[in-house]
């Protein structure tokens, strides 16, 4: 697979490490009510869709940036690649 890095252009997926579902960007608040349940959901439960999947890839052997890659799990086709920091800010995180 080739991941089209937004800054570096096309890179071999071998340069990356895979983490998983992009919802992992949103770590629950450990001091909020129901934090134990929220952390259980966060750590263990996954949507695991057959089809489009937004997922985190780390450019470990490149510029060490985190990317959010939108990829079809039925075909492996990649349709969108964004910097995870941009996605996180857009979705309401401070950094």
């Amino acid at each position: 697979m080739i991941i089209n890095h937004p800054l570096l252009g096309p890179c071999d997926a071998q340069e990356f490490t895979y983490l998983g579902d992009a919802s992992l960007l949103h770590r629950p608040d450990g001091l909020a009510d129901g934090a134990a349940q929220a952390f259980f959901d966060y750590a263990y439960l996954r949507d695991n869709p057959a089809g489009l999947h937004r997922e985190l890839w780390f450019h470990e052997q490149g510029d060490r940036s985190w990317l959010v890659v939108t990829r079809d799990t039925l075909t492996h086709e990649i349709t969108q690649v964004e910097l995870a920091s941009n996605v996180a800010r857009r979705e309401g995180r401070s950094r």
Binding site: Y18, D21, A50, T73, H76
Partner: peptide, 13 residues
């Protein structure tokens, strides 16, 4: 292969 997949086929690496 290391990434989520339902494709029943993998890649070369």
């Amino acid at each position: 292969d290391g990434y989520n997949s339902y494709a029943q086929r993998g890649n070369l690496p």
